[in-house]
Amino acid sequence: MTTLTKSSKGAALKAGGEGSGLGMRMYRFLKALPTWVLWGIVILWSVPTVGIFVNSFRTADAQRGTGWWTAFTGGTEGWTINNYVDVLGAEATGGVWNGLLNSFAIAIPATVIPIAIAAFAAYAFAWIDFKGREWLFIVTVSLLAIPLQTALIPLLQMFSGGAHWTIPGLGATLTFIPDLDLSGTVTAVWLTHTGFALPFAIFLLHNYISGLPKDVFESAFIDGASHFTIFWRLVLPLSVPVLAAFAIFQFLWTWNDYLIALTMIGGNREALPATVVIASLAGEFGLREHLLSAGAFIQSFVPLVVFFALQRYFVRGILAGSVKG
């Protein structure tokens, strides 16, 4: 960081050329421009969120009747914390607290399991030679392109009734997957998430792991290390930033998922996650829709904590340091 800014100053001096006062100042302004642009984007990006945050503390009629920015000039009128009270106190679809618990029960396994499988699979695709490796990798990754919506019903059928095929004419039934009776459970949801996450996880991790320096592995092999040791001792520690990045996304996606959860769980309200519970608060025809803004913030609180907790793993030098050492 410091080296970069130092060098840029040097470049500025050089490029400033004749170095007249105005020219220098202009050049400095232009040099600083990217930073201004950055903060401009940051402000732009936060406007929608700030707006909804303000609105989440306003009454339904105030939200509907006036812009959120007018809330600051109108005194205390229109302000309320009832939206949060109502959301947190709701009980109709199993309650928000129960929903949040279910969200954890879905998001945690749906994050940890794909990471564990995908990290090893990515290592295998990158550094273990086996027959048909390339083919298998292409098939795996092209599964990324499957639209989620097409797979929902077949998966649901599998979860509720297993997979069977009655051979025409013979009347015999083959069972590929037994009746597990998983539909309506949290398990069905995170299993689905795991399935959908694997292609992307393998794709992302493979890109990173295959880019690790070759000599690290070669020297380890010469020392007689097994694949498992290399994976455990070398690959995992070196991949921390990308694992953290994937963990953040996967947690977010599963935490905020609505469609899969609702389809797989359906009428079993004890197992519904917070997204479905909160969306349900609004009711038919957008009735009580003003609760959704407060709901959105309650919902996004946990992912933000996860983001802040994992962000510190994006640090420079993990890779460089270990290569040197």
Partner: peptide
């Protein structure tokens, strides 16, 4: 017995 329906707000579903 499970019942599934479109009314979901706290007042109606409740």
């Amino acid at each position: 017995v499970t019942v599934f329906g479109p009314e979901s707000s706290d007042e109606e579903a409740g």
